[in-house]
């Protein structure tokens, strides 16, 4: 995070610029498609569109600068031999799956309640991660995962649902 700019791969400038540019693009799109912001008369109030416009201008300007600087560096200097683009999405398979499964988890929770959804979610992930990281055998891994699920789900249920009364039961 605290890497120096000098050490940054120029292609990172491009990637970061693209990402921030995308955010500002979505922002502009939403702003333009909210007619209420542009039609009303707000009197002495500078209006609800003032700050969004300023901040979005700043953000898109910044994103363009990053893109520009990145392009410039890629053209002018030799880029390192390492393949930045493959490195960028290296090891993202598990996190991606995890996020997708989280969404399913929430859906499952809304239908079947907290306990059932959590047991499925926790048991499968604990088992899978156990197999991957600790080379557990399928059986011992399942035992540990089961134990972890029991404690984790039980504790969260006990505290949040039973004691505090969060309505996810």
């Amino acid at each position: 995070m605290s890497e120096k700019i000098a050490k940054r791969d120029p292609r990172n400038q491009l990637a970061a610029g693209f990402y921030l540019g995308l955010i500002s693009f979505i922002g502009w799109l939403s702003l333009i498609n909210t007619p209420a912001l542009w039609t009303n008369e707000f009197g002495v109030d500078p209006g609800p569109e003032l700050l969004p416009v300023i901040v979005l201008t700043l953000l898109s300007g910044g994103a363009l600068t990053l893109l520009g600087a990145g392009t410039f560096q890629v053209i002018m200097y030799k880029t390192p031999k390492t393949n930045y683009w493959t490195k960028l999405y290296q090891n993202t398979l598990l996190p991606t799956l995890f996020v997708i499964s989280l969404i399913f988890y929430i859906g499952l929770m809304e239908i079947f309640g907290f306990i059932f959804a959590s047991i499925i979610f926790a048991l499968s992930w604990m088992w899978l991660l156990g197999l991957k990281s600790r080379s557990e055998t399928a059986v011992s891994g399942l035992f540990l995962a089961g134990l972890g699920t029991l404690i984790g789900v039980g504790l969260i249920y006990f505290v949040f649902v039973y004691l505090i009364g969060v309505p996810i039961g």
């Binding site: 929770m109 979610f121 926790a122 991660l129 156990g130 972890g148 789900v153 969260i156 969060v166 996810i168």
Partner: peptide, 18 residues
Amino acid sequence: PSHILLVIIAMLCVVGSF
């Protein structure tokens, strides 16, 4: 064990933000 802790933390994130 961290693989168990990570999953529990993820569940805490879900329940906590709810």
